[in-house]
């Protein structure tokens, strides 16, 4: 088998080559359905807050202000306690790319200015989605972002990044 290009074990069990005949149209429909159900769910990042926080939604600008150290309050006056994921988290890099179109390094360089000039403290870093959910559920001022597949009913979604 080694060295033979094109066909391997996977292709030998493909419905096109042997076994039950599956109409092409049907399999395409299946493919599209699969994409529609799975891909957006994996790609979507949601911003969550504590359910006790009366806010129902946030705008992109408000979110930028909170995550870029410009605002320490939610609209309405409640203090914010922002949470970040670690530098190497793919969700973190997708979040900042979608929010402000910046790489994690650019975000860190931006924070180096605020931090070393004593203007603001970067968001608190938590390592995994489970502890993020726990902290947001526990801390009334918390705000965080997670992959939408990790959302539970212990937190409230206030923004969706497609």
């Amino acid at each position: 088998m080694k060295g033979k290009p094109g066909c391997n074990e996977t292709c030998s069990i493909s419905p096109y080559t042997q076994g039950t005949y599956v109409p092409r149209v049907f399999s395409f429909t299946l493919l599209i359905l699969t994409l529609a159900v799975n891909l957006p769910a994996q790609a979507e990042i949601v911003v969550i807050i504590n359910p006790g926080n009366p806010l129902m939604s946030l705008t992109r600008e408000q979110l930028i202000d909170i995550y870029m150290g410009r605002s320490t309050h939610f609209p309405g006056g409640r203090a914010t306690w922002p949470i970040d994921l670690p530098d190497d988290s793919p969700v973190r890099s997708r979040y900042y790319e979608k929010l402000v179109n910046k790489s994690v390094t650019q975000i860190n360089a931006f924070w180096a200015r605020l931090m070393f000039s004593g203007r603001a403290t970067p968001p608190h870093v938590l390592t995994d989605p489970l502890s993020v959910i726990q902290q947001v559920a526990h801390h009334p001022d918390a705000i965080a972002y997670i992959d939408s597949k990790d959302v539970t009913d212990k937190v409230k979604v206030v923004y969706r990044l497609p």
Binding site: N108, A109, F110, A112, R113, F116, S117, G118, R119
Partner: peptide, 23 residues
Amino acid sequence: VNLGRKRLPIYYYSDFSDVGFAY
């Protein structure tokens, strides 16, 4: 309110002019 010793903010980069990673 801040009391004590700070960088004099003459310029935009004054506060962090030593932090090469930031610019």
